[in-house]
């Protein structure tokens, strides 16, 4: 079963880190990706640029509407994701709990709904 772990956090947390802290934290995050590859959980993982660079796109009555900013304005924003293969929700929760950013923000764990052509 696939789960998407959405990593939410307040961008200020990273802004307030020193350069050495940031490097150590990035390395920790990359090391965790590798650990998940070894354990067979890993499918894909990416970090996202700051929400300042986000656009939100909607199609309404055939017209594209593009607005500045993220889909919702909240303090904690989507900052990255890890797509994993897990045995079940408990397994996924264990994986999510060890994502380094879980210490500062929150991880939303969403089961993937497999679309099939009928």
């Amino acid at each position: 079963m696939k789960y998407l772990c959405l990593v939410y956090f307040d961008g200020k947390v990273l802004d307030n880190m020193s350069e050495t802290e940031k490097i150590a934290f990035d390395n920790e995050s990359l090391a965790y990706d590798e650990e998940l590859q070894r354990s067979g959980h890993f499918i894909a993982a990416e970090a996202l640029e700051s929400v300042k660079s986000a656009v939100t796109v909607r199609m309404r009555s055939g017209k594209i509407s593009t607005t500045d900013g993220p889909f919702t304005e909240t303090k904690e924003q989507l900052g990255g994701f890890i797509l994993i293969e897990a045995r079940d929700l408990n397994d996924a929760i264990q994986v999510a709990a060890k994502i380094p950013l879980a210490r500062f923000g929150g991880i939303e764990v969403r089961p993937i709904w497999e679309l099939t052509k009928k």
Binding site: M1, R87, D88, L89, N90, D91, Q94, P111
Partner: peptide, 14 residues
């Protein structure tokens, strides 16, 4: 059912 919450007693760590 949908999130696959398993039917089990949690492991020692959980």
């Amino acid at each position: 059912r949908d999130a696959h919450i398993p039917y089990e007693v949690p492991s020692h760590t959980e």
